[in-house]
Design a protein around this nucleic acid. Structure first.
Lengths: 240, 240
DNA sequence: AACCAATAATTGGTTAACCAAATGTAGGGT
DNA sequence: ACCCTACATTTGGTTAACCAATTATTGGTT
């Protein structure tokens, strides 16, 4: 067994962090009906004492839940349960916590579908400036590959430029969230073969051309073709 | 001007929080080359003192950057810059921080494309159990609508069940992240007309049927039809 | 009885202090 | 000269204390 693999499996022994435990407790409070939507949570100090843990952890748990829109805290007033969706909390709050970005094939798949749509939107909405930036990013990639250097960062940057051209901040942010983990996985799993770079170069140019032509269908198809390789590989990896 | 609107516009005066300022500073350190990928950050205490701010804020900033995969911190050792992507940090780190989920039309659009794909995947992969849960959720919705009650939570729950049936945790988490803001916006903007519920009921049943039949194309089409209304409305709202 | 003002208690925001583990270092033994 | 051990320092993890603002309460006035 490779050392890297051993480290991998060791990492997967997740100690449940205090924060996550607190989230579970809060969930229990809400599900059991002791805390209804719109209600105010007990003060941070009270929660901390009741749970037998420092206030920092309570605060961190609240922040996390706030990020996902489940709580809302107002200074000098209190933290409140957002009124909208109790059933949601009950059903799937657990899944939210970890946001398991380690499932590589899921990551790739999500990216696959999002990027195809992104390419289509970019083709429809790109400005001349977007196009210039994208072209520049593609050229940067070409230079690196032609000089036999590693170009994964430049690759990602191209996709980031496309995301930026969609003029949809949500799309962009989400792709942005996925990218670092994508890179990590690709590097770790050594997915990119040596001839991959050259092939990708041509594919990038096709995407670029389609976006330049403002041809959404062509852009989507070119992106799909571009991602197909890596998508297929990830599915094979899953089977191992 | 309505009181609610006034509050809305007041809220939009964003105080730059200490955390975000720190993130900006860290970005500057990395971009300027003083901090290269792989390097260790100065200790939290040092950073806090240097930035003239409490250590809590430094920790929070680091956590945020860690969530997005840009930093990695090991206990009793230090926080390190993840080596992969410096250009990414340079280009668009600013956008990441706020994750502007307030752009409603962007939110709807992102959801639109993601849900269509989710419906297709759900149709392909759903188990019998998934189907039973989905059917139950659809029935809950029908009951609420038929008794003239508000059913937005039940509506969301249906979509959550579909996301769950995709067997893709990334897809599921992302939709989960969007939902609370979707609900908030829909309620605030009073998008749902009175007859919407009845129409949606039929659409839900079409989606359910397609997923039951494991017909991906039909599921995608049904979902698109279902979301088209709200998508169109959101674009009109944008123009106002 | 109703209302208003002053004060006391409670809130989240922020900072400082403490802890155990890990690491770097110096010194003695081989 | 090398290596191993013991100690001091530094690390992130955790807790407790302090702060200003808000809210609840209480007492007095009309």
């Amino acid at each position: 067994m490779d050392t890297a693999d051993i480290i991998q499996s060791i990492k997967s022994i997740e100690f449940e962090s205090p924060t996550d435990k607190i989230i579970q407790q809060l969930k229990q409070l809400i599900v059991s009906g002791q805390l209804k939507p719109g209600d105010r949570l007990p003060a941070e100090r009270v929660l901390a004492e009741k749970l037998g843990v420092g206030r920092s952890y309570v605060r961190e748990a609240i922040r996390k839940l706030e990020f996902f829109g489940l709580l809302k805290t107002s200074p000098q007033s209190g933290t409140y349960v957002s009124g909208y969706s109790i059933k949601m909390i009950e059903g799937v709050l657990t899944d939210i916590i970890n946001f398991n970005k380690d499932d590589f094939s899921a990551l790739i798949e999500a990216r696959y579908y999002m990027e195809i749509n992104a390419a289509r939107l970019a083709a429809m909405r790109r400005t001349e400036e977007d196009l210039a930036l994208l072209r520049s990013a593609v050229e940067d990639y070409d230079l690196k590959v032609n000089s036999k250097q590693d170009a994964i960062q430049e690759d990602m940057f191209i996709h980031l430029r496309i995301a930026n051209a969609t003029k949809n901040s949500v799309f962009e942010s989400m792709l942005l969230m996925l990218l670092p983990d994508m890179i990590r996985n690709i590097v770790e799993k050594k997915i990119c073969g040596d001839n991959r770079g050259v092939k990708a170069m041509a594919e990038h140019h096709e995407i670029l051309q389609a976006i330049a032509d403002q041809d959404a269908d062509a852009a989507g198809a070119a992106m799909a073709a571009h991602l197909d390789d890596i998508f297929r590989i990830s599915k094979e990896v899953k089977l191992i």
